[in-house]
Every structure is written in C-alpha cells, then in structure tokens.
Design a protein around this nucleic acid. Structure first.
Lengths: 196, 196, 196, 196
DNA sequence: AATGAATGAGAGTTCATTCAT
DNA sequence: CATGAATGAACTCTCATTCAT
C-alpha cells in the first residue's frame, strides 16, 4: 500500500468519523476531539489533514451533494422515456438518502442551522438541485409534454417537498422504508405539473 | 404604566432582541450577552426573566408556531368555499412569513440544526402543520371533491414545499415580495391533488 | 402587637430561615434568596434587617455560642460540688447541642470552612470555650483537687473531643440520642485529669 | 526527562498550587484561575489534567489522609512496646501535621464546610482514623493492659482532641512548635484510659 | 505524519447587593 | 417596611487551534 493510499485511508477514516459525530451531535456540539477519537487518531492528526473543523463539515456536504446530484443526473440520462426521467431521479434520490441516513441528517437537518458560514454553501447546493428540476421541467414544457407553468417555483417546491419527506424519515423513522413513500410522492409530483 | 406593564415591556424587549440575535447568528453563536446588549439590559436581567437560553429560543419558536397556526386555521374557518380553504391558508401563511422575516428565519433555518434539544419541539410543530393539511385533504376526499390520495405524504410534502419557498426568500430575498409566489404555488398544490 | 414586636418577629423569622438554609446547604451555597423564600419575605426585606449575608451568619454563630456558653456557665454555677461542675457543664452542653441540631451543624461543620472572614470569629469562640475549661481546671489544681497538668492543652483537647462527638452525631446520627454518649465521655474526661 | 516526567511535573505543580490556594482561600473562594496562575499554567491546562475543581480538592484530601494514616500505622508497627504504640502514633502525627501546615489547614479547616459533596469523604476519613484508635484501644483492653472502656467514644474523642490542638496551631500559630504539645497531650490521653 | 499537552477566548449561569417604587 | 427588577462581577467549564517533540 502506497503512502498516498495510507494517507487517503486516514482522511477517509476521519471523514467517516466526522460524519458520524456531526450527524449525531450537530455541528457545534461535535468536538474535534470526538472526531479524532472515533477515527482512532489524535486531534493533531485531524489538523494535519484538515485546516479546521469547518472544512471537514464542508467536505462532507460537498460529498453528499455530489453523490446525490450525480446519481440523479445519471438516472435521468439512462431513462429514455422523457416522461419518466423525473420519476427515475426521484426514485434514485430516495434510495440514495435511504442508504446514507447519517449523511441525510447532516444534509437536511444539521447543515441548516450550523451557522452563517454554511449558508452560502447550502444555498449553492439547493440552487443546483432546484435548478436541475427546473431545467427538466423547462424541457418538458418546450417539448409540449406539459402545460407552461412557473418552473422555478415548482423546482424549489418539489425540492422542498422531497426533502421534507426524507427529513421526517430521518428524524422519526417513518416510513420504515423510505422508498415506500415513492409511489405517493411520484403521483403527487406528476399531478402537480399536470402529467398523468 | 403599571409594574406589570414595565415588566411585560422588558420581557418583550428581551424577546425582540433574542429574535434579532438568534435569527442573525443562529442559536449556538448567539450569546446571552448579545441578547442583553441588544435589549439594553444586563445578562442578569435576562436571567431574571428567563431561566436559560434554551427557554428563550423555545418561547420564540412557540410564538411563531402559534401565530402561523392560528392564522392558518382562522383563514380556513372564514373561507366558506371548501375548495378554497387551502388557498386561503396558503396565502395567509405566506403573508405571515413575509411580515415576520426574522421569525421565519428562526423557524425555517436556525431551529433545525440548533441541537438535539430542539428536535422534539420542531417535530411537534411540523407534525401539527402537516396534520392540519392532511386533515383538510381527508375532508376533501371524504366529500368526494378530490380523488383518494395518500394524504399523509401529501401533507408532509406540501409543508416542505411551502417552507422551501419561504426559506429561499429568507436567505436570498427572492422573490422580492414573497406573496408573488402565491399564484404559482397555489396552482402547483391544487394540481397535485387533482383539483383545477 | 407593637411595631417593634413585629419587627422582632420578622428578624426572628429571617434568622430561623437562615439557620435552616445555612445548616442545610452551607454558607456559600445558601442564597439570600433561599433565606428570603423560607422566611416568607423578599430579598429586599432581608436586606432591610441585615446589612449583608455575612452578618446573618455571624448573628447565628453568636447566638449559638452565647446559648452554649451561658448554659454551661449556669450549670457550673448551680452545681455546688466542685468535683461535679465539669460533669454538669458537659451534660448541659450535650443536651443543648441535641436540642439544636441545625445550630450544631452550623457551629461545628459549616462555620469552619465558610471562608477567611469567619476564622476570627470562630477562633474567638473556641478560645472562650477552651478558656472556660482551662479556668475550671486551674481552679481544681489550685484547690489541690487534681494534680498539676497543662490545663491549656487540656482545655483545647477537651473542647475538640466533645465537639468531635457532637459532629459525628450531627453528620451520621450516631449515637441516636446524643446524651447517650455522656457517661463514657464524662469518665474519659475525668480520668484524663486524674479524677475518679 | 521523559514525557511522562514532564506531565507528572505539571500535575504536581498544579496540585501544589491548588494546595496553596485552597488552604489560603478555602474551597469555594479558590478560583480555578488562581490555581492556574499559581501553577504557572492556564485554566485550560488545569482542566486538561483534572476533570474538575472538585477532583483536585479530593486528590489533595486523599493524599493527606493517606500520608497521615500510613505514617501512623507504620509508627505503631515499629514500636514494640504495646504501651507505647499510641504515643508513637500521636508523635508521628503531630510531626506530620507540623511538616505540612497547608495540608493540615485543608484537612482540618477547609474540608469541613466545603460543601455537602465532601461530607461523605470526610466522614470516611474520620471513620478510618477514629477506627484506628478504637482498634488499638480494643487490643489494649483484650490484653488486660487497660480497664474496659467505651473505646468507640474514646476513639472519636481522641481524634477530635488531637485535631483541635492541631487546628489551633494552624490558625493561631500556638504553640510555635506543634510538637511541644506532645508531652501534655500524651499524658492527657494516657490518663484518660487509666494508663500511667 | 502524528501526538497530546497547552493555550486562551469565551460561554452559560449564579448571586450578593442596590434601589426605584 | 417591603418588594422584586436589575446589575455586574465572578465562576466553572469547553473547545478550536497551535506547536514542540
């Protein structure tokens, strides 16, 4: 195993530990010491790989955003039926959230009130996702597959609606399997743009 | 002015200051000292009226929740047309959020990541609002005014959708006037339950 | 009831409350607010009658010291048999401690570590009591009733010995009735000065 | 000098400083900041080595108790003459107290009123010492070297008597050399159990 | 690379004391 | 006389960050 691999491993271990700790205690209540302990390192070790606590949190946020975004994009690209691209994205996102509960909590709960310093990042991320939806809806409108609607509002509202379903699951455990919410949510969203 | 008035004033001043400080800095980053300074009191003065920081935050949360909830209920009660009760509630909520930007930020941004101690309270509140929507949708279904749907999912998703619109407005200032989002949002929600 | 009586009553009530609170929580942990509450007054009320917390504590200390000292002196004066004056004093002191458990705790436990400001007072008090014993022993020696001994050391040691018995009773409840320790203690002290 | 040595040094320095500050100001009035300053560290440094203020105080108490107890036991073990074991213990205790004036003050003055949290510890310690005396007296009785007496009361009273002598020395400086009290005290105690 | 001791700037909270009413 | 709101200094404890080893 090369030096870089070992380093990579250590960084990975720290990020895993940070995810665990942040999603469990929230940004402010998570101590760098906790992260060091869980990752089986020392505080100094953490600070060797990351300049500060904030950066660790941002790394995780980016990771989750990239994961979700790329999965969604990929799912839409793979689905040939224009009418079903949205469904495919929705399903894959629910599945991704379901598979990464801690990340989901970080993303949908902890990141929001973590402090002014993270607002910009979260706005970027939200903008990206809402934009993805909006662009897709615009395409559907352009192709005449749905009636013209305010796709920007729809993008934001959809994003919020899905998030809220996931947030509820993260915090209450309902529904037991997140994917079980898929059919109802899919129908709701479809109907909302006049698609049956 | 009576003693009680003065006392009420002071408490009111502290709550106003707390709202300002919390919504500006977030729960953790807000110092009780900041609240004291802004409310033109001393730290001891704040602690004379409130047992701790947490209670101040919860007071504000309750206040906003009660305000929103009572306004929404009232609006629905006043609207005789069954089909428009939802619209009325939506409009009045947007207006209420618009009138209380700082409260909205507290409610939709800061309260979420403020720490485990507030999760329960927020879940209660979310549950109340989503429940209000769900009950209304159930009525519509029972009256045969809309097709049977999963009203629970719809309640949660709607709540999340509206919140996201308000959240975006709080954080980015778009749309300049929050009420401008009303028509598009109303149509989106109506369509989503098959109502035209 | 005259004004002065009422005032006396109030002062008495405050002192009673203070005794309770001090002996329960110790000097530092007793809040003036606690005293006010227990005495059914307000903080301002307490400060009207006493200039500060320290003074209240000192008043109680003086009260207990005077009580003990006068009882002991009186008992010795009443006892005609020179040989039994000491026994009489010992018995009456044990009885007085037994009747005033809270005071005893204040006197023998809380007053010691209450802070530098009380050291002088406690030294005075200890000096008075040890001196009483020493003077009595000196008399016995002068009368040729006991052999010459270091009466100063004896006075201090006796005082400490009795105190320790009472302290143990205050803190552990043993012996159930403090007076039960009298015979053994009396014999011990008598023997220590060669008196049978 | 190894890491552990340095660390030991720092801990030792903190304990020394704590002893100084506690015995000077008392438990409640001693600030952790004071201890940090005197030990030439920072507050954080103190808290790195000790979890809280209480633990520091208890450490010192235990240290002194162990020191006194082991010295007393050792002295008794070394003295072959059964009749003189008590004297040996008394002398060595007076010498130990004399050598550690600050510790003595902590032990005999500050620890008593330091708060409910320390009562248990002090009761334990007192019980140990009084028990040591009582056991020794029981042996003397069993060997027929002294008449049967209430050895429990005697143990407690002796312990209190000796303590009071030391306490007086700690607080007033009399007698200048604590050991000067030894002969008189020894004779007093001997006589009290009918031993000449 | 990694460690962990050390720092120091706060944070929340308490409370003796004051004083306008 | 009495109240209780208000003050402000002090206190314990936390923790992100640094740095010698």
């Amino acid at each position: 195993m090369s030096m870089s691999d070992k380093s990579q491993n250590r960084i990975e271990r720290i990020l895993d530990a940070a995810l665990q700790v942040f999603s469990d205690k929230g940004y402010k209540d998570a101590a760098v010491d906790d992260i060091a302990t869980v990752s089986d390192t020392s505080k100094g070790g953490v600070y060797f790989h990351f300049p500060n606590k904030k950066t660790i949190f941002l790394s995780l946020l980016d990771k989750m955003a990239d994961l979700l975004y790329s999965r969604a994009e990929e799912a839409m690209a793979k689905e040939p039926d224009m009418r079903r691209k949205g469904d495919a994205a929705l399903l894959v996102m629910l599945r991704t959230f379901a598979k990464h509960r801690a990340m989901s909590k970080l993303f949908l709960v902890e990141a929001l009130g973590a402090g002014r310093e993270f607002n910009d990042k979260m706005l970027d991320i939200n903008f990206r996702f809402a934009g993805l939806i909006t662009r897709h809806l615009n395409e559907l409108v352009a192709l005449g597959m749905i009636e013209p609607i305010d796709t920007e509002i729809a993008g934001v509202a959809w994003f919020g609606g899905v998030n809220e379903i996931v947030r509820r699951w993260v915090l209450t455990g309902k529904p037991e399997k997140l994917e079980d919410a898929y059919p109802a949510l899919r129908d709701l969203l479809r109907r909302s743009i006049g698609q049956f």
